[in-house]
Structure formats: structure tokens, C-alpha cells
């Protein structure tokens, strides 16, 4: 299987119901200019599960998750080393188009960021429309399906033409999730998707993640440990050393990490002794 263009097209045409896209991170280091931010991360991201990335602020969680769909390099001067495999293929391999990678590995950001000049409807199909033609009937179907998947359809079905910026914060974030789903990615990355939201909206997003797990592989960054414990199947704990470079401390099934972590530092963090 290849991520190069023709194969990508083939992958995108596969039915949505096809499952099981796993990722592996192998010796991933990331830099901002000359400064190393993250060092030597190696871990697996199993298919159709939720993997949480936890750790104190500044330990490199966002940097790592942004490396998983090549968004890291969008920052001027930023680069990454090592391998990130999607179904065994290195997304940093030669000849791989980062634009195609991002279609397969979608991303939801911390702060809801719908396109303010576009309606709810146009926001949902933005990724598809910005990439090519789309006929009206097809677009209608995708908009409804994506909004339903994002548990937003009932709330916005009567105001599809309203501006995306007119929705509440929680609705905006679900709109951003719908927008990501519309592109039919294989993996969804979420960087603290609920940290800017109220508790009720947070619960809605968490419920949504549980539903999305059926179909997608999910990686979520959170600094809320209860949230990691509630939603995730696997948890990776990161920590920055005295050199302020983030490293992976340990990764394992979430219930084990929270009940009997192998590392003292994990236990200290989880029990709230620092961070």
C-alpha cells in the first residue's frame, strides 16, 4: 500500500465501513528551529481505539500529535525526524505528499476554528469543496451524514445557512469535528478538543468520541486526567526533563496506567503530586 497519489485516491474510495487503521511512531523527534522539543518517541496507536496523550503543560503533547499528520512542519522552521507509520507506511517517506497525509489523518484543534466567512453547510464540506468539485445532492448527503455523526444535526438542521461563527462554542467544536469527518479520514487527531468548552459540551464531545471509535482510530491530547481515564483505551504519559525536551515515560492500557503504573513519575503525576 502506498501513500503516493494514485494509491491515496484508491484508499479514499474505499467504503467508510472499512476499519482498522493503526499507526506506529518510531524514534520521533521534533524541533522548532534549533530547539529540540520532543525526543525519541516510540509507541503504537492501535486501530479503532482511543489513545490519550497526557502530561504537564509544555511537555510536547501538541508537538507530537501535530507530527502525526505532518502539521508540525507548517510552523516556520519546524521539522521532525524519525518515522510515523500509517498501516505500515512511513508518512515521512520520500515522495509522500503531506497534503494527502492530512486527508487520511484529520485533526481537531483546541480552540474551535470554524471558517467565519462560511455557513454551517459550507464549513462541513469545506475540505471536499476546497479540493475539487462536488455536486449539490452529493454535498447535501455528506453534510447531513457528517453532522449526524458529529451529533450536531438536530441542533443545526434548520440553520445550515447561518454563519458557522454564530454557533455556541460546543457546537462550533462539533462542527469542526463534522468538517473533519466529511473528508472521511482514517485517523482523527484531537488536541485538547474540550478544554475550551463548558462541562456539558465536554461530555457531549466525550460521548461523541466513544461513538467515533467504532469507525475511526483516535488520538486525543488532554491534560485532564479524569477525561483520559473516562474516554481512552490506551494512555501515553509524557514528561519534559530538566533540558525541557519532552519524552515518553510510559504507555499502556488506560486502566493499568491509572491503577498500577510501572513508573514512579507516572504515579506521581496521576496522583497529582506534580504537574
Amino acid at each position: 500500500m502506498s501513500l503516493a497519489k494514485p494509491m491515496v485516491a484508491e484508499r479514499l474510495e474505499r467504503p467508510v465501513s472499512s476499519r482498522g487503521h493503526s499507526m506506529q511512531i518510531r524514534g520521533l523527534s521534533a524541533y522548532y528551529g534549533a530547539k529540540k522539543a520532543v525526543d525519541g518517541i516510540t509507541m503504537d496507536i492501535p486501530a479503532n481505539h482511543i489513545t490519550a496523550l497526557i502530561g504537564p503543560s509544555g511537555c510536547g503533547k501538541s508537538t507530537v500529535i501535530r507530527c502525526l499528520n505532518r502539521m508540525h512542519e507548517v510552523v516556520r522552521g519546524a521539522r521532525a525526524e524519525g518515522e510515523v507509520l500509517l498501516d505500515g507506511e512511513n508518512i515521512y517517506g520520500p515522495g509522500i505528499d503531506p497534503v494527502q497525509v492530512r486527508r487520511l489523518i484529520g485533526m481537531v484543534f483546541q480552540k474551535p476554528n470554524p471558517f467565519p466567512m462560511m455557513s454551517v453547510y459550507d464549513n462541513v464540506i469545506a475540505g471536499l469543496k476546497l479540493n475539487g468539485r462536488l455536486d449539490k445532492r452529493e454535498a447535501d448527503a455528506i453534510v447531513e451524514r457528517s453532522l449526524r455523526q458529529a451529533a450536531l444535526w438536530d441542533e443545526v438542521k434548520d440553520k445550515l445557512q447561518a454563519s458557522g461563527a454564530a454557533l455556541s462554542g460546543g457546537q462550533q467544536q462539533r462542527l469542526c469535528i463534522a468538517r473533519t469527518l466529511a473528508v472521511e479520514p482514517e485517523v482523527i487527531l484531537m488536541d485538547e478538543p474540550a478544554s475550551a468548552l463548558d462541562p456539558i459540551s465536554t461530555l457531549k464531545i466525550e460521548d461523541l468520541m466513544q461513538e467515533l471509535r467504532e469507525r475511526y482510530t483516535i488520538v486525543v491530547v488532554t491534560h485532564n486526567m479524569q477525561q483520559a481515564a473516562r474516554v481512552s483505551d490506551f494512555t501515553a504519559f509524557m514528561l519534559a526533563g530538566d533540558d525541557r525536551v519532552g519524552r515518553l515515560v510510559e504507555v499502556g492500557p488506560t486502566d493499568e496506567m491509572f491503577t498500577r503504573p510501572t513508573e514512579k513519575r507516572t504515579e506521581d503525576y496521576i496522583t497529582g503530586r506534580f504537574g
Binding site: 507548517v74 476554528n113 475540505g127 468538517r179
Partner: peptide
């Protein structure tokens, strides 16, 4: 954040 939102949808720089 808007540029990133678009890029993260697999949209090219130009578009």
C-alpha cells in the same frame, strides 16, 4: 488557526 484548519483538512497551501 484558520490556515491550519484548512491545511489539516488536506487542502493545499494555494487553495
Amino acid at each position: 488557526t484558520l490556515r491550519e484548519a484548512s491545511l489539516a483538512l488536506g487542502v493545499s497551501r494555494r487553495r
